[in-house]
Simulated assay, not measured.
Amino acid sequence: MTQEFTFTVSDPEGMHARPAGLLVGKAQQYESTIIINRGGKSVDAKRIFGVMGLGVKQGDEVTVKVEGNDEVKAAEEFERFLKENL
Rank of each mutant, 00 (worst) to 15 (best):
80 R>V: 14
85 N>D: 12
42 S>G: 00
24 V>G: 10
43 V>C: 06
39 G>Y: 00
79 E>K: 15
51 V>Y: 11
37 N>L: 01
23 L>N: 10
23 L>P: 08
28 Q>V: 07
71 E>W: 11
37 N>F: 08
2 T>V: 14
16 H>I: 03
53 G>I: 09
11 D>Q: 13
36 I>W: 02
81 F>C: 05
62 V>C: 13
59 G>S: 01
37 N>A: 11
84 E>G: 07
42 S>H: 04
62 V>D: 12
46 K>V: 07
56 V>M: 10
32 S>K: 00
43 V>Y: 04
66 V>R: 07
52 M>Y: 00
42 S>K: 08
40 G>D: 10
11 D>A: 14
38 R>Q: 13
61 E>R: 12
83 K>Y: 07
9 V>E: 10
39 G>I: 07
76 E>K: 15
59 G>Y: 02
81 F>A: 06
23 L>D: 01
36 I>A: 08
75 A>G: 06
47 R>F: 14
61 E>Y: 06
86 L>V: 11
57 K>Q: 15
76 E>T: 15
35 I>Q: 13
55 G>T: 12
31 E>F: 08
64 V>Y: 02
46 K>I: 00
17 A>V: 15
48 I>C: 02
64 V>A: 08
30 Y>F: 07
84 E>K: 13
41 K>F: 01
5 F>T: 01
23 L>K: 02
79 E>N: 04
58 Q>Y: 12
10 S>D: 15
36 I>N: 00
26 K>A: 09
7 F>P: 00
27 A>W: 04
2 T>R: 04
63 T>Q: 15
85 N>T: 12
74 A>D: 04
29 Q>K: 13
45 A>F: 01
57 K>A: 11
68 G>K: 07
72 V>K: 12
2 T>I: 05
44 D>F: 00
69 N>K: 15
7 F>S: 04
85 N>I: 10
29 Q>N: 05
19 P>I: 08
79 E>A: 06
65 K>E: 13
71 E>P: 09
29 Q>W: 06
41 K>R: 09
55 G>K: 10
27 A>Q: 09
17 A>T: 14
43 V>H: 04
85 N>A: 09
83 K>N: 03
10 S>M: 14
22 L>Y: 14
79 E>W: 00
21 G>C: 02
65 K>C: 15
13 E>A: 15
46 K>W: 01
66 V>Y: 10
82 L>M: 07
83 K>G: 03
48 I>V: 00
24 V>L: 09
32 S>E: 00
49 F>L: 14
40 G>S: 11
62 V>G: 12
56 V>D: 01
29 Q>S: 08
16 H>M: 05
86 L>T: 11
76 E>A: 15
43 V>T: 05
2 T>H: 05
60 D>N: 04
67 E>W: 08
60 D>F: 03
36 I>E: 09
49 F>W: 11
13 E>I: 15
10 S>E: 08
85 N>E: 12
43 V>F: 02
52 M>H: 01
24 V>K: 11
27 A>S: 10
24 V>R: 04
66 V>M: 02
75 A>F: 04
75 A>H: 08
53 G>C: 13
70 D>K: 12
33 T>C: 05
46 K>F: 01
36 I>R: 01
36 I>G: 01
69 N>P: 15
71 E>A: 14
73 K>R: 06
19 P>W: 08
28 Q>K: 14
73 K>W: 03
15 M>E: 11
14 G>F: 06
4 E>I: 12
